[in-house]
Simulated assay, not measured.
Amino acid sequence: MATDKIEETIKEIAVKHGIAVGRDDPILILQTINERLMQDSAAAQQEILDHFKEELEAIAHRWSDDAKNKAERTLNAALTASRETMTQTMQEGAKSAAELIRREIKAASAQFAAPIHEAKRVALMNLVAAGMTIIAAGLVLWAASM
C-alpha cells in the first residue's frame, strides 16, 4: 500500500512539474515524513474527538439526571400542594356539613319546643287536678267518718 502511494506521488510530480523522481529521491522522504505526521495528527485528533464525545455524553447524562430530579421535585411539590388543598377542602366541607346539620337540628328542636312546653303544662295541670281530686276524696272520707 505504501508502495502504491509512492508510485502515485512519483507520477503526480512528473505530471505536474515535469520532473522525473526516483524511488530513492530525498523528496520522497519528506513525503513519507509528511504522511506519518498526518497519520499521527489524525490519530491524535481522533483521540481528542473520542474524549470530547465521552465528555459530552457524561454532560448529557448529568443533565438528564438533573432534569429528572427537578421533574420529580416539581411533581412531589405539586402532589403535596394538591394533597394539602384536598385536605383543606375536605375540612371546609366537613365544617360546612356540620354547621348545616347543627342548623337543621336547631330548627327541628325549635319546632318541637312549643309542643313539648305545651305537653309539660298539660301534665302539670293534670297533676294539680289529680292532687285536688285526692284532697277532695280525702275530705269526703273525713266528712263521712265524722
Rank of each mutant, 00 (worst) to 15 (best):
I19W: 07
M125V: 03
Q88S: 13
M38V: 07
V122L: 10
Q45I: 08
I33Q: 14
T133Y: 04
A130M: 03
E72L: 14
K53D: 15
Q111A: 06
T74Y: 12
A97K: 12
Q31H: 13
A97D: 09
T133R: 13
I33T: 06
I135M: 07
V122M: 05
I116G: 01
K11A: 12
I19T: 06
D66A: 06
S64V: 02
D66H: 06
L79W: 10
R62A: 10
K106N: 05
T3A: 15
M38L: 11
I105C: 01
Q111D: 04
G138A: 09
L56W: 02
G22K: 03
R23W: 07
D24F: 13
E99I: 02
I101C: 01
S96Y: 08
A2R: 12
A108I: 01
I105P: 02
V21R: 03
I33A: 04
E72Y: 10
T85A: 14
V15C: 06
F112W: 06
N34K: 14
V140C: 10
E54P: 01
L49A: 09
F112G: 02
K95E: 12
E7V: 09
W142K: 06
K70A: 15
I105V: 11
G93P: 00
N126K: 15
I134S: 11
P26S: 07
G93Q: 15
T85F: 08
T87V: 09
A2K: 11
T89M: 11
E72D: 11
Q91W: 04
H61R: 08
M146F: 14
A123Q: 13
D65Y: 00
N69Y: 03
I13W: 01
Q91H: 05
T89S: 13
A136S: 15
A107E: 01
I10A: 07
A60S: 10
A94I: 10
K53A: 15
M132L: 10
E55N: 05
A136F: 10
I6T: 10
T133M: 13
Q31N: 07
A44N: 07
L100T: 03
R73K: 11
W63L: 09
A2G: 06
E118Y: 05
R23K: 12
L124F: 14
S41G: 05
Q111C: 03
D40Q: 09
K53W: 11
A113L: 04
G131L: 07
Q88D: 11
E12D: 08
E104A: 05
N69Q: 11
I29K: 12
S64C: 03
D25V: 03
D65C: 02
T87F: 10
P115M: 12
A44Q: 09
S82N: 12
K95V: 10
P26Q: 11
I116Y: 04
S64A: 08
E118G: 00
L100E: 03
L141F: 13
Q111W: 02
N126D: 14
A123P: 01
L56Y: 07
T80N: 10
I29R: 09
T32A: 15
A107Q: 04
A136Q: 05
T85R: 14
Q111P: 01
V122C: 00
K16P: 00
A110W: 04
I13H: 01
I19C: 04
T85V: 05
